[in-house]
Design a protein around this nucleic acid. Structure first.
Lengths: 349, 349
DNA sequence: ATGAAAGCGCTAACAG
DNA sequence: CTGTTAGCGCTTTCAT
């Protein structure tokens, strides 16, 4: 195994000083064209490439950003990562991915591991447990240490940092409205417990839409799923609850689900109970996943534009990182709202 | 924004030398208990944590591994990443993700970017373009520079490195056999062009199974999809080709698809053409995705155990990295075969 | 028991 | 035009 070429080696072999080599490789005007050519030729010959770690240490910036997400096996987060990579790579940044696995302590550990100099900033969507505990100490500490943070999707207002989110309330309102416009009278919502910000906000949108139509919400029709049923082992439980709902209220003619899986499972249960979709029951989901597209019937859904969120988050973060360098007054904190749009497919009329 | 605490600062404030502080924090027996206590207390007070970058430079190892994949928006790769993270984090490693986006040059650029000291080793699944061009120079160079490599899923034999793969041929053979056992007589395969290793091997397994049943393969029934139709914009094209196949051979009673999407689309097209699944037509896919589980009918499929592959890949890589330290004779190259298993759902009898 | 100094690989201010 | 030096933060050998 060959050792990597260093400036030192080049310098020794060429019998010049290290700094001459360094400067020559950067086309410094201080160095004669002759030397520059010689150094470069030799560097290429030995396949010299500067050591990133040394540069990071010197510059006190790593040109890498950390993205911490609850789970990577979700299409949405995957899209966000892709967006982050796109933007970051174009700007010469690398991306370290940390998975909290929806656990508070994993989130903290992961962040601490990276905050020790490995990254220049974080892009984060909180774990469920963090939202539940409302313990944001680790975010605060990051900020105190001067590490910029951008939160997305699962946001919390208390943290003074840049944020990227969709207008959950509006997206949900429009989805519910659409169901109403398409003739649904009795619309159920399948949502999360309120500590999940996106669930709470989407529920709010649902209520607003009903209100606009002078419909009184019925507690029975608001199914707040306990804990995170996105996980595979909880699907049966999810199914049972939806079954109960549909059996108790067989005249439900609209379902708005706050994520893709809830929607898909709802459709499955409904089909098993012989609901005709979209004839008798219309369904709209929330997300931009693959399941929706390939479900049968294909699912109408509120698109979240994950990739765009990722790009925007990376852009905000890198702007913050760059401004730290000049130590200029920070520009004000931004909350970027990505607009959703409703994709109508075959689960609605 | 507070600056991060360094040994230097601690030393100055405590009026001892940097090396004393360093040693004290490591409980060196060279240092008096008294000093140790004092230093530690103060370090905690100032929330001192060592700078990873400095450590990396000193130790010439970064404790981070790079994983390069063609696309992150695929459930399989996502599972692999998860497996890699699991194992790597447990061993104190971070994971940098690089996306080649199925492009050769992106793959090369990404790897070069990381090979400059940012990572201790790579886990790689080649881009489609790389397979097509068969240009493996960048892998060779990595190895020459002493950076260990582990390839998974999309493997190429020419590269002398550790590998993790499933037994594609066997998995495909068993899938096809199962179709035969369940009464299918005329089985089509929807596969990729041969330069995609996994497609080629799975096709091989299909042929072997037919052979075992003394069935002559029909060229017409082997649909080799051009380029990568996993991409959304190519789905129409995929559909068209499958339609043509099913129309030309309406008595096809079995389909083996080498990935999830092909299988799902095949089912959709077949349903549109009023094939009864699984009554008249049985379908088996290859992968371990979400689509299969939630399709209707749910898809029988060969499970790839992506997460296990990721864990195994990380394990092999970290072993290689560790052995470099002692500069001991390398242990021989390993190719770890992860066994697949057939998950029978409702697309087969 | 403590500290000085060298070095990981690189840059840049300053000298010559 | 080229070289010396200091320093990024840390570890470690070798004095003291």
């Amino acid at each position: 195994m060959k050792k990597r070429t260093t400036l030192k080696q080049l310098a020794k072999e060429l019998d010049v000083s290290i700094s001459t080599v360094s400067k020559a490789l950067k086309n410094s005007p201080e160095i004669s064209q002759d030397t520059i050519d010689k150094v470069k030729a030799f560097a290429k010959l030995l396949n010299y490439r500067p050591n990133n770690i040394a540069l990071s240490l010197k510059n006190r910036k790593t040109k890498t950003i950390g993205i911490i997400i609850p789970d990577i096996v979700h299409h949405f987060f995957t899209k966000v990562i892709k967006g982050v990579e796109n933007y970051a790579n174009a700007k010469g940044y690398n991306v370290i991915v940390g998975l909290s696995n929806e656990s508070f302590s994993n989130e903290v550990i992961n962040m601490e591991m990276l905050a020790n100099g490995s990254i220049d900033g974080f892009i984060i969507s909180m774990s469920r447990e963090t939202m539940k505990r409302q313990d944001y100490q680790h975010f605060i500490e990051c900020l105190n240490e001067g590490i910029p943070l951008v939160m997305f999707d699962r946001i919390v207002n208390e943290i003074p940092c840049d944020k990227v989110m969709v207008d959950d309330t509006k997206g949900a309102r429009i989805a519910t409205q659409t169901l109403l416009e398409k003739g649904a009278k009795k619309i159920a919502i399948i949502t999360t417990k309120d500590y999940v910000s996106v669930g709470r906000l989407r529920t709010k949108g649902y209520l607003e839409a009903l209100d606009a139509y002078n419909i009184n919400p019925m507690a029975d029709l608001i199914l707040k799923i306990d804990d995170d049923l996105l996980y595979e082992n909880h699907i049966e439980n999810l199914e049972t609850q939806i079954q109960k709902l549909l059996k108790q209220h067989p005249n439900i003619d609209g379902i708005f689900a706050v994520n893709e899986l809830y929607a898909i499972v709802a459709m499955k249960v409904a089909k098993d109970l012989n609901f005709d979709i979209p004839g008798k029951l219309q369904v709209i989901g929330f997300t931009d996943g693959m399941l929706s597209k390939h479900a049968s019937p294909s699912l109408s859904t509120v698109s979240q534009h994950g990739e765009e969120m990722g790009e925007k988050a990376a852009e905000l973060l890198i702007k913050r990182i760059d401004e730290r360098v000049d130590d200029m007054p920070k520009h004000p904190l931004m909350t970027k709202i990505i607009s959703t749009n409703l994709i109508l497919r075959n689960s609605t009329k």
